[in-house]
């Protein structure tokens, strides 16, 4: 799932962020260069792809691993 979420991050950024860079990043997604509008696109993509509700107040949603964990928690 981590790779797929990274692909969606890249897609949401309009291709500005490469999947490999997203997977390798040790910083938050905004620090990597994900803008507000790209982040919103990402949330929509994640909810559609994984049929889940992403709670923006859930915390830890600013990193790839935080998102993966949040979605996994939603699906269990």
């Amino acid at each position: 799932m981590r790779e797929r979420v990274a692909e969606l991050v890249s897609k949401a950024s309009g291709g500005d962020l490469a999947v490999a860079d997203i997977l390798a990043a040790d910083c938050s997604l905004p620090a990597l260069g994900l803008t507000s509008i790209a982040y919103l696109r990402l949330i929509d993509l994640l909810e559609t792809e994984f049929d889940c509700d992403v709670d923006l107040d859930g915390g830890h949603l600013d990193t790839l691993d935080g998102l993966v964990e949040h979605i996994a928690g939603q699906r269990t």
């Binding site: 910083c27 938050s28 997604l29 905004p30 620090a31 803008t35 507000s36 982040y39 600013d62 990193t63």
Partner: peptide, 11 residues
């Protein structure tokens, strides 16, 4: 600050 705290400059 945005980079340090994991937020956007807009925020």
């Amino acid at each position: 600050l945005a980079a340090r705290h994991g937020v956007t400059t807009s925020s």
